[in-house]
Design a protein around this nucleic acid. Structure first.
Length: 670
RNA sequence: GCCGGCGUGGCGCAAUUGGUAGCGCAUCCGACUUGUAAUCGGAAGGUUAGGGGUUCGAGUCCCCUCGCCGGCUCCA
């Protein structure tokens, strides 16, 4: 029997082996159920892949990112088979693996209903049980077209592939990526064909190897991601390497929903969105107001220290300002429509005065530019840092509004820095440090950076300035020591940017701060400064917002802390709980002292039972409960109870006050 | 904006095949004062998001509007 030499790469070692010709990848791994596919010479392959001389073969384990993607991709095929079984008229879109799961898009007459999902899922379970084999065969374009004649969307994908262009549809490369075309057959144990799909693979050996999955929801999605295209019905599912991993994922989702700031916002009485006001417009209640004020006060203090100057600008302006800035030309649909004022119509209906259009401002920068331009500027004044908590209004599409994270009215902690090119590097470095320090003070400390660079099809300014500015940004980002993720082509047309992404307590990432260079706006506003040599120069403008918007930042903090804010931010820092009515006076005196030290404290003098008061404070996630009964009063002490339920009894009141004040001043979490 | 789902007192929920709206918490009143997550009793509170229609009869069925939720698209 002819032999081959192959290299088997296990986790910790490489070993050369001679195997019989015709050996398939799975044979190297003794049919280990944890191995779902193989990496052969750098390419992901099915376990049934036939090895060739010199192949380097590495197992892909089910609990790796690649392994889970293969499980999910296979689950997507099972989903599609189940759907076409139940709804033979359903035409296939694409069905890729995604973070935490998979989806498949279908063109169907009737959108799926919740009951349909249950039916589909149970049919999927049958298919999994059947243990259908996934087998790959390569086909010519003509063969593929013939076999998929009934699947117009697949044919379109083949067209796209043929027409040189990379397919832009997310996930489409999963169907037709790589060199040739391949079709995956699902065959039953008796060898009959159950289903097939155009697909690059790889897949699991059989459907039975899908360890755990669940359908999550259905929703419409535009074909190939474009609003111009028809909508298909998408079914989302999740799939994992084990039942335990699936359960853990579902538990994470529940945890996320327990932390949902919209829910906590009403439970903790922080804010609301009354229908009477309008979509995406929030009302901050007193407790939310305290949080917001704390955030703003501390931010202001840091900005003073950082050399920013504070400015204010109105919420509305004549349209001409936004013509100068370019907003009306490019982003009018993102702005509230104008208020038309001052028009006068004569008796005979003729226009005596045409009137003016005023707009709610969607950004603060035009105003700051006018402040810059209000008089001649010298290079000695630069960098000039203008800061404002500026409230802006954007007419976001109705379907995109989401709690405090996507609103129509928001307040940005916005600043614009006008700088010479020579100052740029030092200024950007200090801004980035400033940003990260501030975010850390609010308890976020796990970051990475994203560098968005020029979109070659859409930009203003010279290539030289883009290159120079981009390399400065990159240098600054690298010097921070943080992970840097490139975002090629992601820049706005007017300049590159760095954005700071923060991971929260349960590992989700949020885009927080952005530091954005702008070569365009100074031009449009004809901003200048007089340089040392007397020449007129144009400053470079930097837009930066640290919180992004206060509303959004509050939402992120709420979810990060699950509503249990660190004491310095907590709306109520201390609840004093008397065990009986006769202890109220003692606690009232203590509370007065705390209040004198700037602590937000309530004494619960309601006629509830003390246990009930503890429960209420606990549900409100108050950081400190100080409880006093006879023993404490006698000893001039209090008993602490913390949010985690642990207690510390008989603490002398002087020490108790010091402890609370200390934690608040140090801005630490308890 | 698009597709789908949902919309019952402040909040969370219930109302068999369409038969005339209930419960818990919160609120108010009264009693009780009790060492670490819910004391007891009573009262008040809803033209079932709004409008139109079908029906002897609509919270339940149909249409429109508004809002919310989940995705898609968008996010200067």
């Amino acid at each position: 029997m002819p032999e081959l030499n192959v290299v088997v790469v296990q986790v910790a070692d490489r070993q050369e082996r001679a195997v019989a010709a015709g050996t398939r990848a799975w044979e190297l791994f003794a049919d280990d159920p944890a191995v779902v596919a193989a990496r052969v010479d750098g390419e992901q392959r099915d376990l049934s892949h036939e090895l060739t001389e010199g192949s380097e073969v590495e197992p892909i384990l089910v609990d790796s990112d690649e392994g889970r993607a293969i499980v999910r991709h296979s689950a997507a095929h099972v989903l599609a088979q189940a759907v076409q079984g139940l709804f033979p008229a359903a035409r296939l879109g694409i069905g890729p693996p995604i973070a935490d799961g998979f989806y498949y898009d279908f063109d169907v007459q009737e959108p799926f209903k919740p009951d349909d999902l249950m039916q589909i899922e149970s049919r999927m379970r049958k298919i999994v049980k059947e243990g259908q084999r996934f087998s790959r065969r390569t086909v010519s374009e003509g063969e593929a077209r013939a076999e998929l004649a009934d699947e117009p969307y697949k044919l379109e994908l083949i067209d796209l592939k043929g027409s040189a262009g990379q397919s832009e549809a997310e996930g489409a490369d999963v169907e037709v990526g790589g060199a040739g075309l391949s079709i995956y057959d699902n065959t039953r144990r008796d060898g009959s064909l159950a289903w097939k799909d155009l697909c690059r693979g790889p897949h699991l050996a059989t459907t039975k190897r899908i360890p755990a999955f669940k359908l999550m929801r259905s929703a419409a999605a535009y074909w190939r991601g474009s609003e111009q295209n028809p909508q298909l019905q998408r079914i989302y599912g999740t799939a994992w390497e084990s039942k335990e991993a699936l359960d853990a994922h579902l538990e994470r989702l529940e945890e996320a929903s327990r932390r949902d700031h919209r829910r906590l916002g009403s439970e903790l009485d922080l804010f609301s969105f009354p229908d009477e006001i309008g979509s995406g417009l929030a009302l901050f209640h007193p407790k939310g107001g305290i949080l917001r004020k704390q955030m703003e006060d501390y931010s202001r203090q840091r900005h003073v220290e950082g050399g920013y100057e504070f400015v204010y600008s109105p919420h509305i302006s004549k349209g001409s300002l936004f013509e100068t800035s370019g907003h009306l030309q490019w982003f009018a649909e993102g702005m509230y429509p104008p208020l038309h004022v001052d028009a006068e119509i004569a008796e005979d209906g003729s226009v005596r005065k045409p009137g003016q259009d005023y707009y709610l401002k969607p950004m603060n920068c035009p105003f700051h530019c006018l402040i810059y331009r209000s008089r001649g500027r010298s290079y000695r004044e630069l960098p000039l840092r203008l800061f404002e908590f500026g409230s802006v209004y954007r007419y976001e599409k109705s379907g995109t509004i989401h709690g405090l994270t996507r609103v129509r009215g928001m307040t940005q902690d916005d600043a614009h820095i006008y700088s010479t090119f020579d100052q740029l590097e030092a200024e950007l470095a200090s801004v980035l440090t400033f940003v990260l320090d501030l975010l850390r003070d609010y308890g976020l400390d796990d970051f990475y950076l994203e560098l968005s660079t020029k979109d070659p099809d859409k930009y203003v300014g010279t290539d030289e300035i883009w290159e120079a500015a981009t390399s400065i940004l990159e240098q600054v980002a690298k010097d921070s020591g943080l992970e840097l993720v490139p975002d090629p082509g992601g820049a706005a047309f007017y300049g590159p940017k760095i954005s700071v992404q923060a991971r929260d307590a349960i590992g989700r990432t949020w885009q927080m701060s952005t530091i954005q260079l702008d070569f365009n706006t100074p031009e449009r506003f004809e901003l200048e400064y007089t340089a040392a040599d007397g020449s007129r120069q144009r400053p470079i403008m930097v837009h930066r917002a640290l919180f992004g918007s206060i509303e959004r930042f509050l939402a992120v903090l709420t979810e990060h802390y699950a509503g249990a804010f660190p004491p310095w931010l907590a709306p109520v820092q201390v609840v004093a709980i008397p065990i009986a009515e006769r202890h109220e006076e003692y606690l009232t005196r203590l509370a007065a002292e705390l209040r004198g030290r700037g602590i937000r404290v309530d004494v619960d003098t309601s006629d509830d039972r003390m246990q009930k008061k503890i429960r209420n404070a606990q549900l409100q996630k108050v950081p400190f409960m100080v409880i006093a009964g006879d023993r404490d009063v006698d000893e001039d002490a209090v008993s602490f109870r913390y949010r985690d339920g642990h207690q510390d009894n008989g603490v002398p009141s002087v020490e108790a006050i010091a402890r609370i004040v200390d934690v608040v001043e140090r801005r630490v979490q308890v």
